[in-house]
Amino acid sequence: MKAATIGVPVLAVLTVLLVARCVAAGPAVHPAAAHPSPPAARESHPSPPAARETVSTPAGTTPGTFNATDVAWLQLMIPMTEQMLRLLELVPEQTSNPRVTRLAARFIAGHRAELPRLRALLGRSGAPGTNVHEGHDMPGMVTAEDLRAVDRATGAAFDRLLVDNLREHLEQGILVSRGEQDAGAEQAVRELAATIERTRTAQLALLDGSGR
């Protein structure tokens, strides 16, 4: 698997290791393709040990101990974070609820702080910085359709849609970050996954009103 063509093989490993075992949804594929059930994914995709192979990287890079799970997690978390930021940035214009506004401000700050670390690690891995999940409808990922629906809503309707998207995003972020800690190889990536798991857990508590 060439780093320049990382895509479906790595996403299949990610699905088997991180997503399929945590959520009911199938693995991420191109929108035109069907979404197989988790059992089918386990039969047709590489088994978890394959994720332990070092990801090939272009000449001049320093791959370290990055494996396919590390790269797949980074390639998932970056667009998940970017898309959630786009949603959160709609809050000031779409709601007058002060609690929602305060939460959005806190979550925006946290998500923005994570992005440079995620991008730096992806760069260190030698994998391409392009969004391999463009157009994919995945658990925890705010899609273009989600953004359009939220953008049309205001007041209480907006607040409900925002909270629903936030909860799915945070819960999925926790699950895949745990999976990275279990199956990743690069210590820096695993440490960042642990940090993001703690952050998402705290944010989920705030969203549910158990932390203020």
Results as ranks from 00 to 15, higher is better:
residue 83 Q to P: 01
residue 87 L to C: 03
residue 92 P to E: 14
residue 144 A to P: 07
residue 134 E to F: 12
residue 79 P to W: 05
residue 120 A to S: 03
residue 86 R to E: 01
residue 138 M to E: 01
residue 78 I to W: 06
residue 138 M to S: 08
residue 106 R to P: 00
residue 118 L to K: 05
residue 110 G to M: 13
residue 130 T to H: 06
residue 105 A to K: 02
residue 76 L to R: 14
residue 84 M to A: 09
residue 108 I to Y: 02
residue 118 L to Q: 07
residue 114 E to I: 11
residue 137 D to K: 15
residue 118 L to S: 06
residue 69 T to N: 15
residue 143 T to Q: 08
residue 71 V to Q: 06
residue 128 P to G: 11
residue 123 G to V: 12
residue 99 R to N: 13
residue 140 G to H: 15
residue 93 E to D: 08
residue 117 R to M: 03
residue 99 R to W: 07
residue 144 A to C: 07
residue 74 L to F: 12
residue 113 A to S: 05
residue 86 R to F: 02
residue 110 G to F: 10
residue 79 P to G: 02
residue 145 E to K: 14
residue 78 I to D: 02
residue 92 P to Y: 12
residue 119 R to A: 06
residue 84 M to Y: 03
residue 100 V to N: 13
residue 120 A to D: 02
residue 141 M to H: 14
residue 145 E to L: 15
residue 77 M to S: 14
residue 112 R to G: 09
residue 116 P to C: 09
residue 94 Q to F: 12
residue 122 L to Q: 02
residue 110 G to V: 11
residue 123 G to Y: 04
residue 130 T to W: 06
residue 96 S to L: 06
residue 106 R to V: 01
residue 78 I to K: 03
residue 88 L to R: 00
residue 125 S to G: 13
residue 139 P to V: 09
residue 137 D to P: 13
residue 137 D to G: 13
residue 83 Q to D: 01
residue 93 E to A: 05
residue 77 M to R: 14
residue 67 N to A: 12
residue 90 L to R: 08
residue 141 M to A: 06
residue 80 M to L: 08
residue 133 H to V: 05
residue 76 L to G: 10
residue 80 M to E: 04
residue 97 N to Q: 07
residue 138 M to F: 04
residue 109 A to W: 00
residue 120 A to V: 03
residue 82 E to I: 02
residue 120 A to P: 01
residue 73 W to V: 00
residue 83 Q to C: 02
residue 106 R to K: 00
residue 103 L to M: 15
residue 90 L to K: 09
residue 101 T to I: 04
residue 99 R to C: 11
residue 75 Q to D: 08
residue 88 L to T: 00
residue 79 P to T: 03
residue 110 G to P: 12
residue 97 N to G: 08
residue 75 Q to T: 05
residue 89 E to F: 05
residue 75 Q to S: 07
residue 78 I to E: 01
residue 112 R to I: 07
residue 121 L to H: 00
residue 84 M to I: 06
residue 112 R to H: 05
residue 130 T to C: 02
residue 103 L to N: 15
residue 129 G to N: 09
residue 82 E to Q: 03
residue 115 L to I: 07
residue 142 V to W: 11
residue 142 V to L: 12
residue 140 G to R: 15
residue 135 G to V: 04
residue 70 D to T: 12
residue 101 T to P: 05
residue 145 E to T: 14
residue 106 R to E: 02
residue 91 V to F: 10
